[in-house]
Simulated assay, not measured.
Amino acid sequence: MSPQRSNRAELINGTLRCLERLPPERITARVIAEESGANIASITYHFGSKDALVTEAAIAGLDRWLTEVAAALAGVDARSPADRFRLAGQAVEATRLRHAGLARSYLAALARGRHDERIRATLAEGFRRARPEVAGLLGLGADRTGNDAAGLVLALFHGLMIQVLLAPDLAVDEPYASAAYARLRTLLPEDGKPEPAQ
């Protein structure tokens, strides 16, 4: 008898619970199946492999984290993109420790993606979906430039997430973050237009 389709969401949710409390090396297919209340064979049936499931769960977790940040900004629609960016950074920092296990597993998925086409495609699709969401959240616009700006914001988020996983003292918290962003603005052209190709 084939595993039921409803097990897919249960497997992702069970994996997310594992990511919250276990180091990546202890998250086995058997542990996930037990946590999810699913048959171990349903992992292969729905995802192809345990690593592919962990990757999808990590992306689902990042999506939920973005939803938390959006909820924190729900009452500040009239503020400028700069204000929204600063407040989003504060919301991320306030929830960072709770999502440390998710961040570790996401980093492991990035490493596996180099050798696994399915995982690489899942990660890339996660970025394609997140860019317009981040652009909308920060008021960056729905055009190509807004999407590109969201890509840079995600690069900043992921880069800092990796650094803080390595050493918590590398976190950039307020008021240092605001000063650092102001310094970065000095690197950008005044008119905000792309430089002509050489």
Rank of each mutant, 00 (worst) to 15 (best):
G113R: 06
G151C: 07
R21A: 14
R185C: 06
A180V: 11
K193V: 03
E20G: 06
V76E: 15
L16Q: 10
R183W: 06
G192C: 07
R84K: 15
M161F: 02
S105G: 11
H158K: 05
L160I: 07
A111W: 00
G89F: 00
A121I: 01
G141M: 06
I40N: 12
A197M: 11
R120V: 04
A124T: 09
A111T: 08
E35R: 13
V54G: 09
L53D: 10
T44K: 03
E10A: 13
E125V: 01
T15I: 03
V69L: 03
A155K: 05
L188C: 08
L154V: 02
T28Y: 08
T186N: 08
D191E: 07
G113D: 14
A57Q: 07
R183Y: 04
E10V: 01
G89K: 00
A111S: 11
A9T: 07
I119R: 09
G139Y: 08
A60N: 06
R120K: 14
R30K: 12
A179K: 10
N39W: 06
A52T: 14
Y45G: 08
R26E: 15
A41Q: 08
R118F: 02
L137G: 00
A72T: 02
I59V: 14
R86P: 01
D169S: 10
G141I: 03
H158I: 01
C18K: 00
L22W: 10
V54E: 05
A180H: 07
A179L: 09
V76F: 15
A182C: 06
P24Y: 12
A108Q: 15
R86F: 06
D116V: 12
L22P: 08
E117H: 13
Q198W: 07
R30P: 02
G14A: 04
A108W: 02
